[in-house]
Amino acid sequence: MKPPPFEYHAPSTMAEALDLLAKLEDAKVLAGGQSLIPLLNFRLASPAHLVDINGIAELEYVRERDGGVAIGAGARQSDVEDDKTVRRICPLLAEALGQVAHPVIRNRGTVCGSLAHADPAAELPAVLLAAGGEVVARSVRGERRITAQDFFKGVFDSALEADELLVEAWFPATTGPFALVEESRRHGDFALAGAARSGDRLALFGVAPTPVLADPTDPSHGLSPSGDLEATPAFRLHLVEVLVRRAFAS
């Protein structure tokens, strides 16, 4: 068996899930599993408990709210990508989803799971930041809204507390020109660098421990991206300049 030992919980309501998260020590929420299951398979993660939220029907929704779109924690990326409300109100999100991994991965992966995972090279956190969106976190203690700017804390690190469930992401309406551009070694891979544009706002990803807001006229100002086998820091800075030019030319 590849995943390390864990106790499996499959609540069927949100209230049950929140009770479990409040009660259990070292629990991890399992949503689409497209990041968490590989981490378990490699034994890079070994939580004592998995709280599987896939059976919670009340979290599977996409709806219009406060002039934007609210995406429930159970909504699959492929369903959100094809959703008419999303395409009408927040085309930037639909555009970005088309570039998240591959269609088969998106059939299972969730929008909220990707945000909670907080991968600095992922598209959706940058889209939430560029659009000025927020997430809704809930626990038995109550509910709070966290803006994108306050949510992403570091590499795979967010403002979510251990007992909180990210129940909804809210993306404001896309107004004005938008773009999601990225460069990766292979189609569908995590980006070496990328840019999300929503009107005049710009967020970069893959170049810092979290997605970052940047000035479109001087996007690499203050950036010091890390280097790895796939790209040097200098190459990432070069990509930022090129990608931002493309994002604002379209």
Binding site: L30, I37, P103, V104, I105, N107
Partner: peptide
């Protein structure tokens, strides 16, 4: 076994998914 190669694809309710990325 980490979702990259696609060899383990099956249909779940008619939609293709990676069977190595599901319990």
């Amino acid at each position: 076994e980490h979702g990259v190669c696609g060899c383990c694809t099956v249909l779940l309710d008619g939609r293709p998914v990676r069977s190595c990325l599901m319990l």
